[in-house]
């Protein structure tokens, strides 16, 4: 009898605990299911719907949108999206690794301020950063004018509205996201290992490449992920500084969704982009599950101002 009572008591406590867990979890769980998980799946479904002439989605089913996306017309854009994103990632790593290394070598007292210096440009609005580059790269802007006047650049070279501008501006917006995780890894790196390698006869570069780089591996993986994925999905930067030859997949999605108002085709393109993005994510996550945590930390500290 007594044992039965304690059992029901324990059960009631367990149920109560479950109930309060459900109540606490429900708001965000339901919200994100409704406005994140369902829409993400919906994209794949709508890719097979027919377009409504008024710009909506019709009830019929068709393969036309998916076929038109797989046509050759998009292969060029797809290829450009991939190579530009890879180039941006490579440049961000090439710049981010030395900067992270350098900051990690400084006196701990100043490191915080140096990182702040890296992050402050992120406090300016994303579009305003792009606009600032348009001002800077403008044909009549002081940068081109002075470079032309100094004879460094021929008069017929323009900085704006080409793929180079897309790469430069994307690197600009992504670089702090690359520096932070690399720094976080470099800060934990034991620099005496480099001296040991030097004592054992390794050249400076060899020690850097064979000891330091593997030592901050996790930071490099994280940096790659936080740069590559937004770059693959970029829309505003190619739209504003890329010109006609700088279009990426994101631009095609936006064009189909707004100018042409063909939502099923936009959905098919978006589904395509989602699949492309899933590849590096899976690759990295399978390789190292703990990267998840560092991605969160990196996005948290870089993605905004307030850490």
């Amino acid at each position: 009898m007594n044992g039965f009572q304690t059992q029901t008591g324990a059960r009631a406590a367990y149920n109560g605990r479950k109930l309060s867990e459900y109540l606490l979890t429900a708001p965000s769980f339901l919200w994100l299911t409704l406005f994140f998980a369902i829409p993400s799946v919906l994209v794949f479904a709508i890719a097979f719907r027919t377009a409504d002439p008024s710009g909506g989605i019709d009830a019929g089913w068709t393969l036309a949108s998916v076929e038109s996306v797989l046509k050759n017309a998009y292969l060029g854009v797809l290829w450009r999206t991939v190579w530009v994103s890879c180039a941006v990632t490579a440049i961000c790593l090439a710049l981010g690794i030395p900067v992270g290394y350098w900051i990690a070598l400084q006196n701990p007292k100043y490191r915080y301020w140096l990182l702040l210096v890296v992050i402050i440009p992120l406090w300016t609005n994303f579009l305003i950063r792009i606009f600032a580059w348009r001002v800077l790269l403008h044909p009549d802007g002081f940068l081109r004018q002075s470079l032309v006047a100094l004879g460094i650049v021929p008069d017929d070279v323009f900085f704006l509205n080409n793929i180079g501008a897309v790469i430069v501006v994307t690197v600009y917006t992504c670089l702090p996201f690359a520096i932070l995780p690399i720094y976080a890894a470099a800060e934990k790196f034991d620099f005496s290992l480099l001296e040991a390698a030097r004592d054992l006869g390794a050249s400076r570069f060899c020690a850097f490449r064979r000891i330091f780089l593997p030592g901050i591996r996790r930071g490099i993986f994280t940096a790659t992920l936080v740069v590559l994925i937004p770059a693959l999905g970029s829309y505003a930067i190619p739209d504003l500084v890329g010109g006609v030859d700088g279009e990426m997949l994101g631009n095609k999605i936006a064009a189909k969704a707004s100018a042409y108002r063909n939502l099923p085709e936009a959905a098919a393109l978006a589904a395509f982009l989602s699949i492309i993005i899933t590849l590096p994510v899976l690759l990295f996550l399978l390789k190292q599950k703990r990267i998840i945590r560092s991605v969160v930390a990196a996005r948290r500290s870089a993605g905004d101002s307030t850490k």
Partner: peptide, 11 residues
């Protein structure tokens, strides 16, 4: 956190 803005917007 890992989904690009474009995908979140279109979905």
């Amino acid at each position: 956190l890992i989904v690009p803005d474009v995908l979140m917007g279109i979905s």
